[in-house]
Design a protein around this nucleic acid. Structure first.
Lengths: 320, 320
DNA sequence: CTGTTAGCGCATTCAG
DNA sequence: CTGAATGCGCTAACAG
């Protein structure tokens, strides 16, 4: 029997005599034969690996997203390689390089501020899906949430609760997500007839320590805010820690709305009001887009925008 | 110039004339040449991939562990492939099979109850590190925590708080971790002069719903417990949800100690007392063991046991 | 429908 | 120290 026949049977080609096919299967079972995936990859000039490049798997936002992606990958016959960029453009670039040399089939990536790796992959025409953030000058499939609208809803909810002096802690200016959410904050203020004040806005780094420091600086204002909108989960945690350290409580001393849900938010007291993102769906959608991109590389890129959902809990209770 | 020379330069062999070496580097930069990792893998008969097979990346226990592993992998030049087994032996076996056909360099695995995949990998002599759980009949490098001692400390802490009727929700009988922690619970009762009662023990499935159901059944006892020890984080969350649903509060109605920390446990009120595991270190240690195993396959297997740490917070306040 | 053949790109012989 | 030649195991193209 020829190797070609075996190959055909094992790759599930149809044009093989059922009888021969059965003989092959029997022999395979008998000998415990196992195809060599690496050789197959070399021949096909592509692997069955997807890379997911995110800033940190320890952030629950990404954890759930990765889970969604991995579920799609599994049903489509791919494996997911986990890459933590830690928001470091150099690490992102290093992983992009690895994607190319290891001939991975595709990439799902949340770009760092300079998006070095993204550029590299774009030039190499690697199947790629951007998640969470847009990148100027790169035309690629993208999965986002309605950041501006979500922020609007969160801040508007505070305004409806009677708060007017509302601060905002957002992310770096170079990150689209930070700017989109800030825009939603401004739009809500405008709609509520509240004047925007630069003094109540802080740009931090999307991390816990950044949120902590920003909160400190806001509390040290001559006239501290009576409510706060924070544009991601880690900075929200940092801000809450700062409040706890100063003996302040939400919502009595300052009302709080955060972007991104945190695990088991319902259990904690006082429970945190959030603009929740459909994180699992984000990952799942990215996986489906990547699959399509691989199947038809020529197709024009599409952007999918998913909706956020305001989860009203205790920290945003109306002003007394 | 010959391909062999280029190969030698790029793999950092010493025996190449510095001048030629420089010329190669220049040409590589000039032409934007990129070595083909897949071909290298075929030739070397091994890839630079590590698989990490865990039940669910959405469980913070595994998230942090994977982060620790990935950090080691990165410094050692490996990539981490993420595999969610969902405690399903069939999925575990499927991933084990993929590890073999894709010629991955090693595996870090948290075995399911029947450990089908683990057996497969063991027979194939794949470099493998077991985490979190032991497997009967498999001699492999293992990273554990001192489960019995950790459980002892947690339960003893409740006893010292004046509680005597202490229940325990643990995991399946086939999982070593569940039994080790149950043993610690029994030992603490014995040391405290409290009679062990089977009626106060529940075996659930290490998931949220299981913890919820077990809590219900304990609360429905003619004489419900006054304190509770739960042997993992998800079941603890389930138990707390059950309490919340019934309008009961910890520690006033029932004191609670959980195994595994949960993210930002300090922020929540009432904050949860836990037997915390060094999850990042668990992953890091597994990575270091795997590296050593790959370097010297003949070496006898070793087991590393890390210490848990009792984090005393509000839900275990002494009995009034 | 099946067999023969060639070559993917590299690392490793072995000669020189 | 360098170059030429071989083969890792598979699949695609072609011939029968």
């Amino acid at each position: 029997m020829s190797p070609a026949t075996v190959s055909r049977v094992l790759s599930g080609r149809r044009n093989v005599d059922p009888e021969l096919s059965e003989k092959v299967r029997a022999a395979v079972a008998e000998l415990g034969y196992r195809p060599n995936g690496v050789a197959r990859n070399l021949r096909r000039a592509s692997t069955n690996l997807w890379a997911v490049v995110i800033s940190d798997i320890e952030n629950p936002f990404f954890t759930s997203l990765v889970r969604g992606l991995e579920d799609v990958a599994q049903t489509e016959g791919y494996h997911v390689v986990l890459c933590n960029s830690d928001e470091d453009p150099a690490k992102e670039a290093a992983y992009a390089s690895a994607v190319l040399t290891e001939q991975m089939a595709g990439v799902v990536i949340s770009p760092t501020s300079t998006a070095e790796g993204v550029q590299q992959l774009d030039e190499a025409k690697t199947p790629m899906v951007l998640i969470d953030r847009r990148v100027e000058g790169v035309e690629a499939d993208t999965v986002l949430v309605d950041n501006e609208h979500g922020a609007f809803e969160g801040v508007n909810h505070l305004i409806e609760g009677g708060y007017r002096r509302i601060a905002c802690i957002t992310g770096p200016r170079r990150v689209s997500t930070a700017m989109d959410r800030l825009a939603g904050y401004r739009a809500a203020l405008r709609a509520g007839g509240i004047r925007f004040s630069k003094d109540l806005v802080r740009h931090a780094d999307f991390r816990e320590a950044g949120g902590f420091a920003a909160m400190e600086s806001l509390l040290d204002l001559p006239e501290p805010p009576e409510a706060l909108f924070v544009t991601n989960n880690l900075m929200t945690v940092g801000a809450l820690e700062c409040l706890a350290k100063r003996g302040l409580r939400a919502p009595d001393d300052i009302a709080v709305v955060g972007f991104d849900d945190i695990p088991w938010a319902d259990l904690v007291v006082p429970s945190l009001t959030t603009v929740a993102q459909p994180t699992y769906e984000l990952g799942r959608t990215a996986g489906l887009l990547l699959k399509d991109r691989i199947a038809s590389p020529g197709r024009p890129p599409s952007t999918v925008t998913l909706r956020t959902e305001l989860h009203i809990r205790a920290t945003s209770a109306p002003k007394k």
